[in-house]
Amino acid sequence: MSARVSAGDAAAFYPSDRYGYSELLSTPELAALGQLRTVLDKQVAPLLGEYWEAGEFPYQIRQPLVDLNLMAPEGATDSQGRTSGLYTGFRNFELARTDASVATFYNAQSGLFRTTVLKGGSPEQAADLDPKIRSFEYTGVFALTEPDHGSDIAGGLETSAWREGDNWVINGAKRWIGGAFTADVLAVFARDEADGQVKAFLVPRETPGVSMSKILRKTSLRMMQNADIELRAVRVPDTARLSNINSFKDVAALMRRLRSDVAWIACGLQAGAYEAALRYTLERQQFGRSLASFQLTQQKLATMAANVTASLGMVVRLTQRQEEGIFRDEDSAMAKMFTCTAMRETVALAREVVGGNGITLDTDVARFHADAEAVYSYEGTHDINALILGRALTGTGAFR
């Protein structure tokens, strides 16, 4: 990796990064994020209000994001073509700082699906598919949650699979699967009827027996297209099975990595809300002076800035430990729990200081405020993550 960026460059790029965590990035990494910032500001941000209100995704932004080669930017990879964990984290931060749906859409490919193939697939599967995943030539989604099972999915997963010769037959249903309508394949988790263990399969979206419908009437992540999926006697070859996923313990190993992605998204969403609120209060005049000049406003802005800073500190250190090979359920659970709790307070304060205009899409704050609720819940609710941490603290599991 190249030399680290200067403190001045990092501070100018991330004004909400008060302790300068972005100074840990290399110059090529910050350059790649700068290119992303340009696309987000010029081609994505102007569309957000309209598409959020319509409950549709602006698919025209997909190709500009793909063209940036964000999963392997030039000069920002090691000798094996890998990016650093901090760069990946700040990439999620940057996306979410603009919009949580955009971050979720991109992370469905770069985080959820890519991690599932890299860690769940055989070395041969990973080597064959990862270049195609990085280029978006081969797209996929993570299909674990079910209509009746979310927090209890480990023991409650009902989607079933059984082997018939060289094929597998899958029956079941999945819910809340973001990005499914445009994915090439669905990474479907199903319980093997032969041994009762969870397995994973790459199911082409247009396979006979696969049907899906859009989840409507959402008040959060309205742009993200979530699907209800039914699988009826869906047949896939044994080569479609990800051979390193043979129990829910293997799925849990994926979740340790994926929760840190969501914690970074929670940080970015906070930063976006805080920066939007700060801009508004500096510009808005009341009682003959700017809102930002009032003591109560400054106290709320200070709390928001502190929340972003504390959350960044947690995810940066978590990422550094994971780069060292330290992956623990309780670590990622604590980060997801804390950053999302801070996020909820931050977006509420942002909406408060913007006043009545904070419920319109014009200031961006309302979008962050609403979208935070989905981020708060997905990849493990607050309570489940607290219990995962509590089990590690006490040695006693409070849930099964």
Rank of each mutant, 00 (worst) to 15 (best):
A190C: 05
R163W: 06
S26M: 09
A372S: 15
Y106N: 01
N226I: 06
V262P: 04
P46Q: 07
Y378T: 08
A392P: 09
G209H: 04
E53N: 13
G8R: 09
F113T: 01
A374E: 03
V44F: 00
A187Q: 01
T88Y: 07
R279C: 01
G150D: 15
L24V: 02
D250L: 11
Q63G: 07
Y378M: 13
T396R: 12
A302S: 14
E50A: 12
G355P: 04
R235P: 00
A292K: 07
P64M: 08
A200C: 15
R37M: 05
P123A: 09
L144E: 11
H149Q: 14
L278Q: 08
L387I: 06
L36F: 06
K214F: 10
K249G: 13
R114K: 14
A183C: 11
V315M: 04
V236D: 00
L242T: 04
Q320S: 07
F368Q: 02
L393H: 05
M255P: 02
A372G: 10
Q63A: 14
L291H: 09
R232H: 12
A12D: 13
I153H: 11
F287D: 12
S247L: 12
T341F: 10
G121T: 03
F181E: 15
R256C: 11
S122M: 07
E137R: 15
V353C: 08
D195N: 14
V117M: 00
A310G: 05
T394E: 09
I326L: 13
L202G: 01
L129C: 05
L129W: 08
Q63T: 14
F57T: 04
L70R: 01
L24W: 02
R163P: 00
V353F: 05
Q125P: 07
A350E: 03
V203I: 10
F93L: 13
F57M: 07
Q295F: 13
S293K: 05
R222M: 10
I170K: 00
A302G: 13
K300G: 06
Q322E: 14
S101A: 15
L70H: 05
S213N: 12
V141H: 03
I245L: 07
L318M: 14
E53M: 12
T77L: 11
F368G: 04
R284L: 04
Y59S: 07
E94Y: 00
T38Q: 10
R400W: 06
V308P: 01
Q320T: 08
A194G: 03
G196F: 06
L254P: 00
A306S: 14
I61Y: 00
S151F: 07
L221W: 05
L36Q: 04
G8Y: 02
G390T: 06
I229H: 02
D383T: 13
L258Y: 02
A11V: 06
I229Q: 01
A292Y: 13
E324M: 14
R328H: 12
V203P: 03
